[in-house]
Design a protein around this nucleic acid. Sequence first.
DNA 1: TCTGGGGTCCTAGGACCC
DNA 2: TCTGGGGTCCTAGGACCC
Length: 460
Amino acid sequence: MQSTNSNKQIWALIDCNNFYASCEKLFRPDLWGKPVVVLSNNDGCIIARSREAKALGIPMGEPAFKLKLLLEKHGVTIFSANFALYGDISSRIMNILESLCPKCEQYSIDEAFLQLDGAILPNLGGFCADLRKTIQQWTGITVSVGVGMTPTLAKLANHIAKKNPQFHGLYSLARKSTEIDSWLARIPVAEIWGMGKGHCKKLQANGISTALAMKNADDVWLKKNLTITGFCTALELRGITCQTTWENPDWKRKTILHSRSFGNRIHGFEELSEAVSTFTARCAERMRAMRLVAGGIWVRIRTSNFDSGYYANSGSASFLASTDDTAILIKKAKHILQNIYASGYPYAKAAVMFFDLAEKDKRQLSMFETTTEKSDNLMAALDRINQRYGKLTLRFGAMGLHVADWNMKQKRRSPGYTSDWNELAMVRWSCTPGKAGGLNCEPLKAAEYLGRLKAASSTD
DNA sequence: TCTGGGGTCCTAGGACCC
DNA sequence: TCTGGGGTCCTAGGACCC
């Protein structure tokens, strides 16, 4: 009998090429074809590179100050991370994918898995090419597509599509097993999804250096040395899907974290307390948007690894009744901070995490608290105002009243082209008749343009 | 001078119980 | 003074992802 995959599910991984750098280029046609890098928060490390920057040999994850000369020499354009922009472009792409495929699961800001019906196999090339073309036309972002019988194989296929220009950003491993194996024999274990440094070291020490060798490795050895997750990866290389997280209706978010390095070191308790309170408020805002409540809170402070005299400490506390009230959360965070703070250190980083999350509508109230209506109304008003008039318009005194010295550095952030009326891309020129005839033209910001439209319509 | 942030999962080991 | 065996739960830490 002829083997067929037509009744099976197959997986496609869609991955945006050089995503952050591509987003920056969308609104800067002058940078097309030129090297661009994006820096981490506080303008620390390089976290994204355009194709041209990769070709110059600029490494990923390297601190920018170490590469200053190289970046200058090649005229590389440097951006601070602009996550509001990347998040917005990402959601546009995810919307397109969802409209093209009912079973679509976002995996990261720039990746999504599609579950396709095996019946599509004869027309797979056409479907994927259309998908690439649509995303390119509607958003300006180029994506690579990898297809396989399991998520792990789809990931590898995507890797092949990226590394081999002759495939034009699209490769399928949903083929004969001999053909799959000939690819796997050429792929080093480090390229396999889930195989990091530690696992690769163990694999190589045991003589397993290619994806094919891992596929054929001994089950007992895999479980013992790479834990159950490594064993599952080997199963996926064999074509057996283990990944179930996405289809599981019981999946729940477990934690919400806000962690930042400071723009400048903090020495005093008061300032540190303002930072921790601000981080707590940010977590709370995100948590309310997800309709969740926290059962506990964890706070950590630390100095820099690169300063002498390292100090780090953390503490946590649980609530009798889970809450999403910023005032209660800040109070607890400050209490923890008092217990873990030691004076005399230059603090470089703090983190706040909420854990034991639960759905707000299903939460357990305490014996003494029968309603949270007052708090709910207050928090809802707070969120609405800050959403409408900008972050921190309304805030708690504990967060400090001035622009803090510890705020992160973002010297080269691009405008919020798609997320801020005042920073929208310029849409037209404003022209007035010049004295000597002709026109005087100036760029007109979108916000101003809208203002004029509004004024004009109210006088009609 | 300057070295990111936000997650998940797994395991070993300690505390505790009967 | 002797000090087993089986079980659960919690936590810290490691590994991995993008």
